[in-house]
Design a protein around this nucleic acid. Structure first.
Length: 594
RNA sequence: GGUUGCGUAGCUCAAUUGGAUAGAGCAUCUCACUACGGAUGAGAAGGUUUGGGGUUCGAAUCCCUACGCGAUCACCA
């Protein structure tokens, strides 16, 4: 389609220049609105002054010129200042053949450029929740899209396995754990540890209350609660390598990692390399020391280390505490350095929620000041929070939608829905269970990915995620239906169209479908540039919808005209393959039967 | 309070980056079928794009302003 589009642009340019002596460089064609006839629309309003004619008159003359000078244009229509063009059927069939040829491999040419993407980034003090699901699905999908767009992608995960919050779970476990393990409790490791994170908060709040009752200022009470002080001591002990603390930390972390591994497997996401902050924070400290020598950082009287970013429009920022322990940003500096040493990629994408916009602005500015070779290609893919009707999720207060629970629920819903419809007749038990997985996870992933990543989105746990309309299962269904058609076609010995492009007559439904199919590769490109899986999701929906429309209006295998039958089968086949590929970019499986 | 993002149908989301009568799904109502898979298709209804001003041939989109909702401004991560 691109070729046709460019030819049309050229023809319009020539028309403008020879009719009105207007030299226009960047002409943009728009898609013609559904209610009008045509494929592309050229807006002539901007040229009325230069041409000295009414918009309609310009459009009329220009349309006539293009019709005479461009063989592929079948007709044009003028509506006010909008000039709409339609192409001949032959152009469309040729376009279809080109699309098929280029869809042999859907991926774009290799760009010879490495890109790092970091996503997931869980804390090892609690299980994953709904927000993490959006993060993981997004990160995985963006990685897939970048790969398809021709980049060499390295997926990384930075696990936040150290810090005061980890000590909180540990401390509560020490106090109340009584030797409980995942085995004895029957709880998944991350859930067990999360239980003690909540327990800490309860103890902490109780202590604050007591202190306040004793007449202490609430703000002061928050800082001086004994259990909090103990947690701080524990962090220091950890950084000093205290054997007992280290042992507990290792044990509890191992539980959490085992739990996460299961969750990741269920999500269908993976990583090329997993980093742990416990391994990178020392490197961060080293970078701080270097920067201190070079005068990029400075030390205050209490020994804490800072950077001044006021010139960049930001504040002073702490990079090392007065007791010498590292903070969040110290670790991120170390990780950035380590990632560069490991992979040498100059482009790096961080998939992290928009609550950390400020943090990443600071981090990227620090890296620039340090003049690191990887300091210019950083991008914070800042996605919006998932809101519940009750407001924001808070782990400590238990107002979270747990990731494992939600995924299990989705699979269960898929099962019920499928059994209601009696769709698993002839399936083995294993096959049915696999199908429920694919459908349930497809619904969930599509639900979270179809929305523009930058935007906040709403999730209502009371209303289950749909399986009809603009949903994953709707598109999966379309794919399965197409598979059924192509299976039958093979049995009947019906063939796809070959190179012969003469003598085909097309309906608008077919033309519209060819048009959409032709957009796919440019959608991949666009999604890669904007890091937006939602573009792929919306595209796939449009494609499936257009195919279903055709399916309802026209016969495919029962069509008696051989040319028509074969071209429709070709369209079905290509649609199925495109859906399958597009969904793979979203991390969604397209079953052949459902 | 400073910084920053957002506000579109009852609900959840779109809108080709300034273009035509603002589009989909869900929910509501009507219709199509002995079908190549109905987890479908066609249609109705639903909107002063938060309010008010401005910029121009043309504004959901850009500017100003008021209101509303988030995020952030930690020696938490």
């Amino acid at each position: 389609m691109l070729l046709v589009q460019n030819q049309l642009i050229e023809a319009i340019k020539n028309g403008l220049s020879s009719l009105f002596e207007i030299q226009a460089n960047d002409l943009v064609l728009q898609e013609t609105k559904k209610e009008f006839e045509g494929t592309y629309t050229f807006v002539v309003f901007p040229y009325t002054k230069q041409a000295g004619l009414s918009p309609a008159a310009i459009a009329e003359k220009l349309g006539q010129f293009v019709l005479e000078n461009h063989k592929g244009v079948k007709k044009f229509q003028v509506v006010q200042g909008f000039l709409n063009f339609s192409f001949t059927d032959e152009i469309w069939v040729n376009a279809l053949l080109k699309i098929i040829e280029s869809s042999q491999t859907f991926t774009l040419d290799n760009k010879g450029e490495k890109v790092l993407i970091e996503y997931s980034s869980p804390n090892t003090n609690k299980p994953l929740h709904l927000g993490h699901l959006r993060n993981n699905f997004l990160g995985y999908s963006v990685a897939k899209i970048l790969e398809a767009a021709g980049y060499d992608v390295i997926k990384t995960n930075l696990v936040n396995d150290r810090g005061i919050h980890i000590c909180k779970s540990m401390l509560a476990y020490q106090l109340q754990g009584q030797g409980e393990t995942p085995e004895t409790s029957g709880l998944k490791g991350d859930h067990l540890v999360g239980k003690y994170y909540v327990a800490f908060d309860i103890l902490y709040k109780a202590e604050i209350e007591t202190l306040v009752k004793q007449g202490l200022d609430p703000e002061k009470a928050k800082k001086e609660a004994p259990i909090l002080l103990k947690a701080q001591d524990m962090l220091l002990a950890w950084e000093n390598g205290d054997p007992e603390v280290m042992k507990l930390w290792e044990t509890m972390n191992a539980w959490v990692f085992a739990g996460f591994e299961k969750s990741y497997a269920q999500m269908g996401v993976s990583f090329d390399k997993i980093y742990r902050e416990s391994n990178t924070y020392l490197l961060g400290k080293k970078l701080v020391e270097e920067g201190l020598k070079e005068g990029i950082f400075y030390q205050k009287e209490d020994q804490s280390v800072w950077i001044n970013l006021e010139e960049e429009g930001l504040d002073e920022k702490l990079v090392l505490r007065k007791d010498g322990t590292s903070v969040y940003i110290t670790q991120d500096m170390g990780t950035a350095q380590l990632k560069f040493e490991d992979f040498g990629a100059k482009k790096s994408i961080y998939v992290v929620g928009n609550e950390q916009d400020y943090h990443f602005e600071v981090l990227f500015n620090i890296l620039k000041k340090l003049n690191k070779p990887y300091s210019l290609g950083n991008y914070h893919l800042s996605y919006g929070m998932v809101d519940l009707p009750t407001g924001k999720m808070k782990s400590r207060e238990g107002t979270v939608v747990d990731a494992d629970d939600l995924m299990a629920e989705m699979v269960q819903t898929a099962k019920e829905r499928t059994m209601e419809l009696g769709k698993t007749d002839g399936f083995t038990e294993d096959a049915s269970n696999e199908l429920y997985q694919q459908l349930g996870m497809g619904a969930l992933k599509y639900f979270l990915l179809k929305v523009d990543p930058k935007k906040r989105m709403m999730f209502n746990p009371e209303e289950s995620i749909d399986f009809q309309g603009n949903t994953g299962p709707f598109i999966q269904y379309t794919h399965a239906r197409i598979c059924s058609i192509t299976r039958k076609a093979t049995e009947l010995g019906i063939e796809l169209i070959q190179a012969n492009t003469k003598g085909f007559e097309l309906n608008t439904t077919e033309i519209d479908l060819i048009y959409i199919l032709g957009l796919y590769k440019s959608k991949i490109e666009e999604a890669a540039e904007t890091f937006s899986p939602s573009l792929i999701a919306m595209y796939t929906y449009d494609l499936a919808k257009q195919f279903n429309k055709l399916y309802n209006e026209l016969s495919i295998l029962k069509e008696e005209d051989e040319n028509k039958r074969n071209i429709r089968l070709t369209l079905a086949d290509l649609t199925g393959k495109t859906i399958q590929h597009a969904f793979s970019l979203l991390g969604i499986v397209s079953p052949n039967k459902m």
